[in-house]
């Protein structure tokens, strides 16, 4: 045994054989430093344990630091910038689209093009109207569409004249157009030959974006309003939304 300090641990833990143990104890008697080292062995062991522990903790600290440095994607500046740009562009596009849709929607078409059919019985009031037909027309003029609708339906169902039935169908077509029930409106317009139906049908096709039917309609019956609708349907804005 050359370096007794190297064997302090083995001595303390009883791991030396008999001869080595004896040699060690003889050396301890001679060397006070060795004796002190044996006395302080437990503290040295604990200090070494602490060195091990801190070495391990340093690795954990590195892992913690690396986790802390990982910035979630949604917090990265470039990601935020791109996301914000896309959001603005999408918002602008859909906002613009919504604006255009309002230009070519029912309310705008109604405001720009629709005309109520003229009631020939203007001097009569509902109370003194003598026939269902007259009352239905006045109720329509008063914008009491539900009441006029039921009376017009009655006219179509009973033994009214063909002229009254044609007018009833025309008015029902108008009522359903105003209620934005376009399919029903077109069905009732099919039941009448009254030419006043064409402009409302054109407005329906225009709102629906059906340029083919609009063009075909123009070939059958043309008016300034229908030609204007066709012209407007050729604009890029109209085609963007329709």
């Amino acid at each position: 045994m050359t370096d007794f300090f190297e064997h302090i641990d083995a001595y303390v833990n009883g791991q030396l054989n008999k001869d080595d143990r004896q040699n060690f104890e003889e050396e301890m008697a001679r060397d006070t430093d060795l004796k002190k080292a044996v006395d302080n062995h437990s503290m040295v062991s604990e200090a070494l344990e602490l060195l091990i522990e801190e070495d391990i903790r340093s690795i954990v600290d590195q892992v913690q630091e690396s986790q802390a440095k990982v910035i979630p994607l949604y917090k990265k500046r470039w990601f935020i910038f791109i996301a914000a740009t896309f959001t603005i562009l999408f918002g602008a596009y859909f906002g613009f689209r919504a604006y255009l849709e309002s230009l070519y929607g029912h309310d705008q078409v109604y405001a720009d093009y629709y005309e109520f059919p003229k009631n020939p019985y203007t001097t009569r009031s509902v109370e003194i109207s003598s026939t269902t037909f007259e009352r239905s027309m006045y109720l329509f003029d008063l914008r009491r569409f539900e009441e006029s609708e039921s009376l017009f339906q009655e006219i179509l169902a009973n033994n009214s004249s063909n002229d009254e039935k044609e007018i009833a169908a025309l008015y029902l077509g108008n009522i359903y157009f105003l209620q934005q029930k376009y399919q029903q409106s077109l069905e009732y317009f099919e039941m009448t030959n009254d030419k006043r139906k064409y402009e409302v049908m054109a407005q329906i096709f225009y709102i629906q974006g059906d340029k083919e039917k609009l063009t075909n309609l123009n070939n059958v019956h043309t008016t300034d309003e229908i030609r204007l609708l066709i012209k407007n349907s050729n604009s890029w804005r109209y085609n963007l939304v329709k």
């Binding site: 300090f5 002190k36 080292a37 302080n40 040295v44 200090a47």
Partner: peptide, 13 residues
Amino acid sequence: KHQCLRRLYALID
């Protein structure tokens, strides 16, 4: 290692 260990013993003492 020997030097460092001796140093540690001395510090404690």
